[in-house]
Amino acid sequence: MRFKDKCDAWGLPNDPIDFSAIVCNLPLYLEGLWVTVQLVVMALAIGLILAVPVALLASSRSIWIKALPKAFIYFFRGTPLLVQMFLIYYGFGQFEAIRESFLWPIFREAYWCALIAFTLNTAGYTAEMLRGAIEQTPFGEIEAAKACGMSGALIYRQIILPSAFRRALPAYGNEVIFMLHGSAVAGVITIIDLFGAARIVNSRYFVPFESYITAGLFYLIMTFALIWLFKRLEHRWHAYLRPRET
């Protein structure tokens, strides 16, 4: 992923608004867009997988079982994403032990540091949403399942989790959009994501308005696509809540 100066002539006119630097560097924006999509999609996918067991443990009644997952949730919801990312990127790099260890090839790369921070952050938020949704399961549903002779695992698999996912869906849609917007912090640790691309173009051509509004438009388009997607999902998953069509 290398920045190549596509505009050979630096001779950009001093117009109040001038998008020529943006047009010349559109490939850079598209590369950045692709990095943003990769980071967000991977972080959300892995984060969701992590969130399920964390939420299950956190909704336990035993203090011993729920202490650790609760602490995880509190930490990642209680601190800014930027702080978490700096802690992993700059903070871990400080320790000789980590620099010497087999983990260093991962922590050496800004890309993986950002992915780890994003994954853990979204896992924390998603786990809390799921925990809430799990605890809201109506007692009647569980009693009915027990009365049918279902085992504990089967109740979780067939009754509690599916309805919890349904209840958490609207909130999760927001989390996905927040993650997309939050991913802009990757641009701060040398990653050329969408925001990183905008920063490079701004600092080379001194066009802050044009460079950031372009990045903003790309984020806007992705956000609308996500809103549309979650509307479709809710339409499907919440079908039982719709008035029956006759």
């Binding site: 290398r2 920045f3 700059y90 790099g93 400080q94 620099r99 260093w104 050496r108 800004a110 040398t190």
Partner: peptide, 20 residues
């Protein structure tokens, strides 16, 4: 080369120390 661009010179030094 792969170019890593930093907001400040100090950040570049920090990453030099950690071997990035």
């Amino acid at each position: 080369v792969t170019i890593k661009r930093y907001g400040t010179q100090d950040e570049a030094y920090l990453d030099a120390v950690s071997g990035r």
